[in-house]
Structure formats: C-alpha cells, structure tokens
C-alpha cells in the first residue's frame, strides 16, 4: 500500500508542478498568491510521499503532518513551514475595508509583502525542500527550476 501511495502522491506532485510552472511563466501577471499556494501544495505532496515511503502512512490532518515533520524531519520542516506560512498570508490576510489614517506602515498586498516571489518562495524554500526530499525518497520527480 505504501508504494501505491507514494506513486499517487508523486502524480499529484507532477500536477502541482505543471500548475506552478504555468503561473511562473505567465509574464502578464505575477500571480504571487497562487505561486505561494501551489508551491506549498507541491511541498505537501512531496513530504507526504516521503512520509509514506519512510513511515508507511500519510498524514491524517494538516496538524499531524506538521507534528511528524517537526519530530522526524526537522531539516525538511525548516523549509516546509515558511512555505506554509507564506501560503496562509497569501490566502487569508486582508485589510479591513477602512484601515483608517495611521502613521504606521501596514501590509498592503501579498506581492508587496513577498517581494520577489520566485526568490523567496521557489529559490529560497521549495528548491531546498525538493533536494532534501529527493535524498530521502529515492524516487524521481520533476524539480522546480526558475
């Protein structure tokens, strides 16, 4: 069963990879929120393939996944958590309709927050995570390149 699960997860890795590449290569719009989100989803499938291979089971919840990585794969977790964090900011953080006048500089957009998304998300985290997972997985998958 573990082998089937690893293969299933790697199929999802490839689908997420294809979507990520399409977003990155779209010169018309930066799509930063979706780059962060799809990069995170690719990372989820990669770590779940690794967990299935190494521990014989996939995670039953998001929190369980974090717990397993924090304890058993700390180096991978250090790349995974910032991807998760960025996707949360991308998906859920928004300003109130009327933030009011203030001298404090507040978050204005995800693109402004993340800056160069390719550098921060892809080069900074996803590629590192892919290299670490590849060592433990021993199965081929398409690596992200920018």
């Amino acid at each position: 069963m573990a082998e089937t699960t690893v293969k299933d997860r790697l199929r999802l890795v490839e689908r997420n990879h294809d979507a990520l590449v399409a977003l990155i290569e779209d010169a018309r719009n930066p799509h930063d929120e979706w780059v962060a989100t799809i990069a995170f989803y690719k990372a989820i499938q990669l770590v779940e393939a690794l967990l299935a291979k190494r521990h014989g089971s996939v995670s039953t919840s998001h929190f369980r996944r974090l717990e397993r990585l924090r304890v058993h794969h700390k180096d991978i977790y250090k790349q995974f958590r910032p991807l998760y964090n960025a996707s949360m900011v991308a998906r859920y953080l928004c300003l109130p309709d009327e933030p009011g006048s203030t001298s404090v500089a507040y978050f204005s957009s995800f693109s402004d927050y993340i800056g160069d998304a390719k550098a921060a998300i892809i080069n900074g985290r996803l590629i590192q995570l892919e290299a670490l997972v590849e060592k433990g997985l021993g199965e081929p998958f398409t690596k992200t390149r920018v």
Partner: peptide, 10 residues
C-alpha cells in the same frame, strides 16, 4: 504563524 503588520481588525 507569522503575519506582517496589520490593524487589529485584520
């Protein structure tokens, strides 16, 4: 989880 500086309403 970390988030950038936002008003408390956010």
């Amino acid at each position: 989880l970390s988030i950038p500086n936002v008003p408390s309403d956010s």
